[in-house]
Write a protein that binds this DNA or RNA. Structure first.
Lengths: 203, 203, 203, 203
DNA sequence: TATGAATGAGTATTCATTCAT
DNA sequence: CATGAATGAATACTCATTCAT
């Protein structure tokens, strides 16, 4: 879990760090950021409060690190679509992207909740962190859509609105999927999204 | 006599209540729930802290009331679609619903932010409040979709997933629209959504 | 006591402020700055911890205010020596200055201890505050000495060293006088200092 | 054999002790006692925190030891004045004492600051330590003055006050001299003090 | 109705000190 | 001798809430 971002402080120290990160992730996602005290996190690892501060500057720091790490994994799961590759049609590549995303979310339901439901509006700095990520993501998607529109793979229309629509829809689906509200497999989710993108909702 | 006096007080009292509600709405949307103190709200109305508690039980109460009132207005703006009315085809009715929603949001950007970005994950009780609303909304939409699928107006497929997708997309659009990120008029936004629902994104 | 520097917050509030200032002065002088907690100060006034923060931003603020107020009173007790006034010879004026100083100190033994023994080396900001005061004081004395040297009222020699010697001696005397170590009256103390300035120590 | 090993350890251990003492002296004089953590001291010697506690019981202990050592050296630099020695007139002996003191201070500016500016008001125990030293010093000076007064070498007057005045003045001069505020050589400083003691300040 | 002084529970954070390795 | 991870007591500070006026 939690990738292998932090390597400092030797192997022992890193283990404790990761324990704390996982405990924080679970506390935050169960009770929210504000309702979680540093002591809650420390207690969950059976460690004294002071120990927490050996590894993280403060409460925000551990949240920011959780967030940064997960946003990084999300970014890593998205691959640029190669329109020229004859062996992999664009729709296949898009589908693969969606599938990786859904599977990543499935494996980290707590982080999905933190990232999509709790993080927005927590702190100015955290919001910055998120805005930066989303701005980059939207830019990336915008360029892909523009390319697609040129090649008539994507319908004409306001791309920013399309992005909002798709991004929002996808976020909601990931959240609901992780919560178990949607009783579908990853593949079924992706297929349904693809169908929607292909034909819309109205017959 | 007493009655009259009481009513008079009631009316003035109501004015104060509304001032406080508006002040709270603006404080919350500007700085977030936790970064807003009861004193901030009271000061914005040029009233003492104690006065706040004459009108609201506590801080959560005023947020809950703001939320309930706005969710009520959202619910009120959505009209059931009458499939039998020959003078108003279903798509027209759906379009009208969306337009009312977008215009409602346009008029209350602060409440849109509070409802969609800040409220989730604030408190257990607030989450309950939201879940209840969304559950009812989803149920309502689900029934409409079911009806529409029966009559071949809506494509087959997992309705819950469709709802998540559309709801999430719509929420994101409302948020971005209120933030001014989307440089479109209400009608243009609605048209684009309708186009998406009609044909999807991929050409 | 404690002058009338703060007038804000109405009469009631000012009373509480002054109570807190006096409590802080006594706590600090009895146990030192670091060994005094905000709670100690509040308890001494039979008031809750939070009340302290209604009147002072933090612990340093109340110390800084005590110090500033007392340094102000010291400055106010020192009068420029008018060499031209035939009715009041310079020595008389110097004597009067010293007497005012000793009497001021006698009335505020706690503040003497805080200012002379505890304040130096507490905080960077506090040190600044003191340095500024002493720099101004030394400058003032230096000008007086220079004038005196011109008129042959003061012996030639390095003025900065003289100032250090006299200032240090005076501080020590004030401290010891307030502690009761010196079993003398204010007038006797002043007379002895004057004798020393006149003739030195060695016969 | 064991003895030799123990001594060897003792010698190395002593080296570490001294390194720690010097590091502590510099940390304390740079940032003050409270702003210096045990870790700061240990880090300065490139040693782990735990190592500190192999040599000193706690933080106060190392400060107390620094202080005791320096007070000891001060005491050692002061020689009893032999009034009977015809080859060395009393003023010469006094002058020599002052010169030794100023030169000692010049060589240890950090300790001068610690002893004169920081130590007073730090801890009850430390204050005791200082009071004991000063009491002994004052007693010693008092006896010398008494002797001097008997022989008409010292002016009549309250000896305790004289001591306060001279001690305070001397302390201030040593501090300012170490800070470089006084732009004089050790000899010049001593000469000025002697002139002051001889004739006072007023012409 | 309105006030605002007072409350005190709640938390983040620091750091001297210990101890297993 | 040396380490440094772990400890947890100690404290400053915030802020929702109350209540006497």
């Amino acid at each position: 879990m939690l990738g292998c971002a932090a390597v400092a402080r030797g192997i022992r120290g890193n283990k404790r760090r990761i324990e704390l990160l996982e405990a924080a992730r679970d506390c935050f996602s169960e009770h929210g950021y504000h309702a979680t005290s540093v002591d809650d996190i420390a207690k969950r690892v059976h460690v004294a409060r002071g120990t927490f501060y050996l590894y993280f500057a403060d409460k925000r720091a551990i949240f920011a690190e959780l967030l940064a790490e997960f946003l990084g994994r999300i970014a890593g799961s998205i691959q640029s679509i190669d329109l020229a590759d004859p062996s992999r049609p664009p729709r296949e590549q898009l589908r693969a992207n969606l599938l990786r995303l859904v599977e990543l979310a499935e494996g980290e339901p707590a982080m999905v909740k933190l990232t999509l439901a709790d993080a927005p509006g927590l702190t100015y700095e955290l919001d910055e962190q998120l805005q930066t990520f989303y701005a980059a993501l939207r830019l990336f998607i915008d360029e892909s859509l523009q390319e697609g529109q040129k090649m008539n793979l994507i319908r004409k229309g306001d791309r920013q609105l399309y992005i909002s629509l798709v991004l929002g829809g996808l976020q909601r689906i990931l959240l609901d999927h992780c919560r178990g509200t949607l009783a579908l497999s990853a593949v079924e989710v992706v297929d349904a999204i693809m169908a929607f993108l292909n034909e819309g909702l109205l017959a």
